[in-house]
């Protein structure tokens, strides 16, 4: 399995990770190598085998339908949520202008 640089750029776009042309070539080689290695899974008979999504050891459960922010009240929770924002205006996160 080999990957072309066009595919690598498409994946990088989907993952929102910037890459330059030189990197795209290196990544195409490395990712192609990993994909070639995982192709051995094609040997395994999987007809009728269910996918393992988790271990299934924990019983699914529903929590009580109540507010769960515990003792954090009076705006303190808002401050905690915003405390690591790289940029903010008052009680808001900021992003570049998205609407013209």
């Amino acid at each position: 399995m080999s990957l072309d640089t066009r595919t690598v750029r498409r994946i990088a776009k989907l993952a929102r990770i910037g890459i330059d042309d030189a990197e795209a070539e290196g990544l195409a080689r490395e990712l192609g190598g990993i994909l070639g290695w995982v192709e051995q899974l094609d040997e395994v008979e999987i007809a009728g085998v269910p996918p393992m999504i988790g271990t299934g050891l924990a019983a699914p459960r529903a929590r009580e339908d109540v507010v769960t922010d515990g003792t954090v009240t009076g705006g303190a929770c808002r401050e905690a949520v915003l405390s690591n924002a790289p940029d903010r205006v008052e009680a808001f996160f900021t992003v570049p202008k998205v609407v013209e």
């Binding site: 993952a15 990993i34 395994v44 999987i46 996918p51």
Partner: peptide, 29 residues
Amino acid sequence: RRRILMGTYVLSSGYYDAYYLRAQKVRTR
């Protein structure tokens, strides 16, 4: 970055069944 890109690829449309779903089934085995 390499791992995110690889993960994005195996989850992307057209490859999900061939890689991710197959791996989950092998995981069951």
